[in-house]
Design a protein around this nucleic acid. Structure first.
Lengths: 149, 149
DNA sequence: CGAAAAAAGCATTCCAGAATCCTTTTTCTG
DNA sequence: CAGAAAAAGGATTCTGGAATGCTTTTTTCG
């Protein structure tokens, strides 16, 4: 993966939150997604600091998105998790590599970076939700006699 | 950086080796490049296993490239250092992401991967040497009254 | 009000990659 | 042959991210 595992967990958790703004327990999220509970809780707390999640304590509390899912970009989440200077510097770690004196991968990597970061600012949590819905639906279609509510 | 620090060190060390196949001490390389000595030594030993370097022990020994620098690709070195499955899996770590059910960054990331890996199989250690030479030359031109041999 | 539920906060543990140290083996040279 | 120079190999330490556990604070509800 390109990002840290914590960033991946954050994105997965955000995509798993309900859209209607109801509060959701950290424990529920972690068990539904199969992620380490206390670790995910800490990540969610960080997302509260970044104003991506809101939380209330106590019974009937939990976490919810501060905004509709289509208003939260993947790029925003990545920046909140990894800091703004993710993906800086030479791909191969050459200290002498820069625009004046590019390494052989410099241009390819620059293209990559702008490509990925523009995709990241385009894509929203909503898109991630849709992907998961699509995924579940396909699984259901592979087993046609599954429970029909 | 995209790769591990060890991979970066390996590439830097290879680019710093003389092209004429003379043996070079691990200690010299590390001091010239400012890299941790014993750690670099271990990395070089790994490159010997991968048939990228040859070594002889004892006085007048050291390390040299097994082939001319333009015959060793960056991709080969990366594969030797990181294993063949570097850069596998979803950028964001979504387990459900695949060709059937792509995440929003899937296509951009696939393009990235093929772009970077083709650049890596194109670029050789020679290209890295040239970059360093260019870098030194520019430094010299910025200080015109530098030592003339 | 008091008890339970839940996030918040903090200290601790775990683990892999990074880095160091020491011993062994090989090879050159006087 | 003896001794020194160097890589090879193994054990160990260090460090930061990943993960866990425990205590505190806030909130709801009977």
């Amino acid at each position: 993966m390109l990002f840290s595992t914590a960033t991946g967990y954050a994105l997965r958790a955000l995509a798993a939150l309900p859209e209607d703004g109801t509060y959701c327990l950290a424990k529920d999220l972690s068990s539904r997604l199969g992620l380490p509970g206390p670790y995910l809780a800490k990540i969610l707390q960080g997302l509260v600091q970044a104003d991506i999640l809101a939380s209330v304590r106590g019974p009937k509390g939990g976490f919810r998105l501060t905004r509709p899912a289509h208003r939260i970009t993947v790029g925003e989440v990545v920046a909140a998790m990894e800091g703004p200077e993710a993906m800086e510097g030479c791909v191969m770690g050459f200290p002498s590599c820069n625009g004046e004196n590019p390494c052989p991968l410099h241009d390819a990597w620059s293209a990559v970076k702008s490509q990925v970061s523009s995709s990241m600012t385009q894509a929203t949590i909503r898109d991630l939700q849709l992907m998961d819905i699509r995924h579940k639906k396909e699984a259901k279609e592979r087993v046609p006699n599954s429970p029909q509510p």
